[in-house]
Structure formats: C-alpha cells, structure tokens
Write a protein that binds this DNA or RNA. Structure first.
Lengths: 342, 342
DNA sequence: TTGTAGGCGTTATCAC
DNA sequence: GTGATAACGCCTACAA
C-alpha cells in the first residue's frame, strides 16, 4: 500500500503538505502543488478512507436502511439515494431490514459502529423504531416512506391525501361499495392511507362498512387472501383500493382466479409501481409515489444536514394518480411532482 | 463517545486487557474478565470499527457490486449475500453498477479505498471488468452471474446447459422454428445462453436460422422491439426463448399487443424470476437460477477466502426448469439445487 | 508557505 | 496474566 508518506518523500515535501494539496485545506505554492500531484500520479496513491475517517471522525459513508429490497418501490428509492449521494462524493451502505424490527435495530447499531455520517431509513415502525441515541449523538437521520418523530428530517408523501386520491378515482368510476386492503394496523403509513380512504368515501356520502377494510401484511399472499375474503361477501365490492404494490399482485391473482373481470365487475386501484406486472396488466390504475425523487431528495437533505447547511428539513412530495383505462402502457401523465416544504 | 480507555479506567485495568477480553485474543484471568465485561456493560461501550479497521488493516465489511438493482434476480442474490454475511458478522456495502463499466470501475475503487475485506461482483463485462489490482493486493473477489478470469472464486450456473434446457423445453412442446432473444453480444453470459440454444436445436436436427437470434439489451424495451421484429418475419417463429427476465416482460407485451396467443400461436420460455408478472401470467415457463442460494454461497465462499480457510473456490449451481402450462402459479417443482464443486 | 508533532481508537509486541 | 508502548494512515494545531 502506498501511503502519504511515500508520496511526500517522492515529492520531497512533508506529508502535511501532501495532505494540504489533496484536501485543499490550505494554500500551497503552485510549484509544490505540481510536485505533489506528480508524485501522487506516479505512485498511484489514493487516500486511505479508513484512516481519514478515524482522524476526521466522519466517514464519507451514509447508510440506507430500507424495508423490503424485493419491493420495487424501495429499489427505486435506493437508486435515487445512490445517484444523489454519489454525486456528492458519498458512498452508500444499503441494509435491508425486511420489516423486522430486530434486524433493523441491529443494522442501526452496525451503522453507528461503522461511523456512518448519516442515515436514511424507511422505518419498520413509527413508534418502535428507535433512533434517539443516534440523533442524540448528532447523527442526522432522514426518514422516508414513514414519519419518525425523532428524525432530523423527512421526505414523505401525504399518505392521507394519497389514499383519498386513490379512493376518489374509484368513486369517479361510479363505485359505491369500495373495499380497502391495507398494511398492518400498527403501520402508520398503512393507517394514513386508510384514513384518506375513509375521508373520501365520507365526503362522497358513502356509508362506511367495516367489513370492507382489511388489514394485511403488505405482501402478495396478504393481498390474495384479503381479496378472496372480500369476494366471499354476500354483496361483493365494486371497487378495491389496495394500498401497496405487492398486495396488488395478490389481489389481481385472486380476481383472475375467481374469474372476476376488471373493470366490468370491479374497479381496482393500487399503490406504487409494479414495473413488471404493470406492463402486462391493462386495467390496474394506481397512485404513485415519486420513489426515485424521494431517494434523491432524502440524500440531498441528509448530506446538507451532515454539512450543517440546510434550513429545510421536512419535504412533502406529491403522489400522482396514474389512471389506466384501456391500453396497457398508456403513457402515464408526466405531471412533475411538486414539493411542499416546511 | 465512550472509548476503550474509559472502560479500562472503569475496570481498573489497562486498555490492552480490555482489548484482550473483547477480542478473545489471549487468556485473561476470569476475575479481570468479569470486571471488564461489567465496565463495558455499565458504560454501554461498543468498539469503534473504524479504528479497529485501521489497526487490523481489515474491516468486517464486504462489498457487493451488482448489475441492476431493479432486476429481481439481483435483489434475490442480495438477500442471499446479506443474510449469509450477517450470520458471519460481516456488513455489506451494496453498489449498483447499472451495467455501466465506468460506474463499476468507480465503485471498485471506492470499495478498495474503504478497505472492504472482500468483494462479490456480478461483472458488467467478462473482459472489460478489471479486478487485477484488487486480486494482486490480496483482496478476494467472488464472481457471480458472469465468470471473470481473474476472480478468486465464483458461483455460477452453467449458462450453456441452462440455455439448452430452455430450448429443449420448447422443442418438447413441438416447436420447430425457435427464436432466441439474448443480451448484448459482448456479454459472455448472454452468449453462453445462446450457445446452449444452438446446441439444443442442432441436436434436435433443426436448421439454425440467423434471423431468429437477436441480441438486445437485457431490458424491457429490448425484448419488446426484438419480439416485434420477430413477429414481422414472413414466417413467424413458433417458439421463443428470452434469456432474461426483464426482456421477457417486453416480449410478453409485444405478443399481447399483436394479439399473438400463448401457447396457441407461440410457446415462450423466459430466464429467471419475474416475481410480479409471473403470478399474473399463466403461460410463461422459465429457467430459473437459484438466485438466493447463489448469493448465500458467494458470501460463504468469500468469507472463507477472507479467513483463508477454503479449498473450494468455484461452485456451479443448477438452474431449474419451471414449466407452466395452464394455471397461474402452478406449484413449481421444488427440486433442490445440486452443487457441482471444483 | 511549509514542517513538526500529536492524536483519532484500536491492537500487537514486548517486557514484566 | 497484565501493562506500557508503538504503530495503523491521516489531518491539523502550532511553530518556523
């Protein structure tokens, strides 16, 4: 390994000068500078980031803890984070907590021990995810997907509005018995989407039916079982709002199996992209979070916090309605997501 | 931050002893040991991994560089790697190279600078991905998905066999004009799958038609365009082998749009899972790589190499045929993947 | 502008 | 079995 000392000897200067040239932390005589750069070039020197991290007490690494790496929503968030972080010279440690609060806790510890400069997290739980000691230590934490009281900042959509948006789409289609399949009851995001649903049907003067709201697990099988249950009711729903993408797949499969036709027998709206299924399934409308932008924004915000230069800490992005009627792959409206800032 | 020095003072011993207790690197008097552990507990001390990494010249971090984070095959590999690494006490830095050789090169550099203990990579290119200096430095590199001559080890499937397996499935269905849509020509994995295809049709006594083999980009639009081209031929193919999952989506969409019925007008077989689309599409058979196991195995192998305790360096896993005829979600045969070891 | 020296928190070597 | 002490490679006062 070639160290700064090697470079300094090669250039005939002290290692302090090499450091100054490389970090730009102080003025250096242009001639010396050239000497140093030549030596760096010649020896192929690259700074040891571990040593630098130890010395500076700050790495150039941020951690991204996501809920479900097999969910395309989160992978899109990842891409946004990574692209944005990379531009700013940060590396990303990605951790997949798998909706498991224990695994998440473990990752939070590891990430702290690795001296990450900051954390972006889609929390497993709004009240059980504990980041208080990280924040206390001054580590910035940005929450995405789900609000977290203790977080330094957040990039979220208004899930209540999004839930209402979805529901109103069904109402606009003439549905009057609208069911809703949402995530675990203790999941605040899932709860918000249902609340939006309730608001929308109330505003439309539709009587709420408790049986039509089912709390499931945000996975395919949960959506599948919930849909079968709904189809087993004496009076079937004529509209269905599924609050996450993986459950929507399960729902579609159940409908397919039972020979229920979309949109003739039932209208359905999902939540978030299903890159694969979507292209093949003509009638699935959905409300879409700007996943990539959420990631980008979160990284931008985090890095600003790390550099202590950001007044804006909480960003709300708009979810958009993607209404699909006939053709598969109808071009989605390209409404640029607006940002609300607080 | 509480350091080892704090602990040593609390316990009334030297920091060297604390280190010995924590790492188990030498015998320590049971009583002292207890004292130290009590102090650790009391102060909530946790070792600083950066300092440890600097001193030991080895982190507990492995890097995983994948080709396409939006491809469910690679996310499944990720899960395998992560689960396996975590069990062994390693953290994972995930990098998404996006099939971009430059981005990949940059990540390889970063990862080296961060002093990762080892690397698992699905290379962007068999001959342009350059890991020689890493290997020269003694960093173990495990290749997955695509062979890499310089790699320390690898976990792969035999793509030629897998290509033949897929093609034979179509032949068994009675297809006689079988087309193949594969990845970029310079991609060795794509080339291998085509070679398997060629072998299979030759063995079946079918005359090869150059027009029926199309090299595309491993993405949806590539599969889509290639399929449209194939359907524009005077004599349409009656069988189609698509060598990757994302292109299969494009192919299915093209078939759907042009009103070509599966399996009446054409038989199709894909490669690798499409967790979402698959459930909704009844007639897509496929050849599946054991993605999760590939990841697990790669991590196991890598960690063994890091610990210098592994004679076995190259693992070949079997791809399996998932034949789907009628019902969506026909239970896939649970043939346990066999491992061939060299 | 440049060099010297000390320390970031840990572990390894050497004495005792 | 335990304690000083010196690194690991870098950065930053401070001094020159």
């Amino acid at each position: 390994m070639v160290t700064m000392l090697d470079v300094s000897r090669e250039a005939g200067v002290s290692s302090a000068t090499v450091s100054r040239v490389l970090t730009g932390s102080a003025e250096v005589d242009p001639k010396t500078r050239m000497l140093v750069l030549a030596a760096v070039e010649k020896l192929g020197y690259r700074p040891n980031l571990v040593a630098r991290g130890l010395r500076r007490q700050a790495s150039q690494v941020i951690a991204l803890i996501i809920t479900d790496i097999e969910n395309p929503f989160y992978t899109a968030v990842c891409r946004g984070v990574e692209d944005s972080a990379r531009l700013a010279g940060y590396s990303v440690i990605l951790c997949n907590a798998d909706r498991d609060i224990e695994k998440e806790r473990e990752y939070l510890r590891v990430v702290e021990d690795q001296n990450a400069s900051g954390i972006i997290i889609s929390p497993a739980s709004a009240h059980r995810t504990d980041i208080s000691n990280l924040v206390a230590r001054g580590l910035p934490v940005i929450a995405v997907d789900m609000a977290l009281a203790a977080a330094t900042g957040s990039v979220l959509v208004d899930n209540k509005d999004a839930g209402a948006l979805a529901t109103n789409h069904l109402i606009g289609k003439g549905c009057t018995r609208i069911a809703c399949i949402t995530g675990p009851a203790e999941n605040s995001t899932a709860a918000d989407r249902v609340e939006g649903y309730r608001r929308a049907i109330a505003e439309a003067g539709i009587q709420e039916e408790p049986k039509l709201v089912i709390y499931a697990n945000y996975l395919e099988d949960g959506g599948y079982k919930a849909t079968r249950r709904l189809l087993g009711l004496k009076t079937r729903p004529d509209g269905l709002f599924v609050t996450n993408n993986r459950m929507a797949v399960g729902a579609l499969r159940a409908l397919q199996e039972m020979g229920v036709s979309i949109p003739d027998d039932i209208n359905i709206i999902g939540f978030d992209e299903l890159p694969w299924a979507l292209e093949l399934h003509p009638y699935l409308s959905l409300v879409r979070q700007p996943a990539y932008r959420i990631g980008q924004e979160a990284a931008r915000l985090l890095i600003a916090c790390i550099r202590k230069e950001e007044p804006v800490k909480h960003v709300i992005l708009d979810a958009e309605l993607v209404a699909r009627d006939r053709r598969p792959l109808a071009k989605a409206r390209k409404k640029p997501a607006k940002a609300t800032i607080t």
